[in-house]
């Protein structure tokens, strides 16, 4: 064992805790301060509630956007297919008219 290590062991030997240490610990145990203050629980409850509210708000917003997008898409599908049906019907009518008038009236290639 070298001299430094000897010196360290001497210097760092355990010391007695100050007088009344144990009593101090026991006193703190039974004092209200030793128990978690109600406001700590309240804070956690508040944080949890706010987080849940935020989650609900985000979900609601997402659902609202999805609904708006869905309604828009629905309107577009209705419009697009209506236009398609009208054009085809118009074409069918013209083809029928042309066929009834004879080949000179128009030049349908084929009919649906």
């Amino acid at each position: 064992m070298n001299r430094l290590e000897e010196a360290l062991r001497d210097a760092l030997r355990r010391e007695e805790a100050p007088g009344g240490f144990t009593e101090g610990v026991l006193a703190r145990l039974s004092s209200p301060a030793a128990r978690p203050a109600p406001w700590v629980w309240l804070r956690w409850a508040l944080v949890t509630t706010l987080s849940l509210l935020l989650l609900v708000a985000v979900q609601y917003n997402t659902e609202r956007r999805r609904r708006a997008e869905g309604e828009r898409a629905k309107a577009q599908v209705l419009t697009a297919l209506r236009i398609t049906a009208e054009k085809l019907e118009y074409t069918r009518e013209k083809t029928t008219r042309a066929t009834s008038r004879g080949p000179a009236a128009g030049r349908p290639v084929n009919t649906i």
Partner: peptide, 18 residues
């Protein structure tokens, strides 16, 4: 618990003190 405190207070106090 008090016995535990008495037994180990020197060790704990010395560690934090040093």
């Amino acid at each position: 618990f008090a016995d535990l405190v008495r037994e180990h207070q020197s060790m704990v106090y010395s560690l934090s003190l040093h």
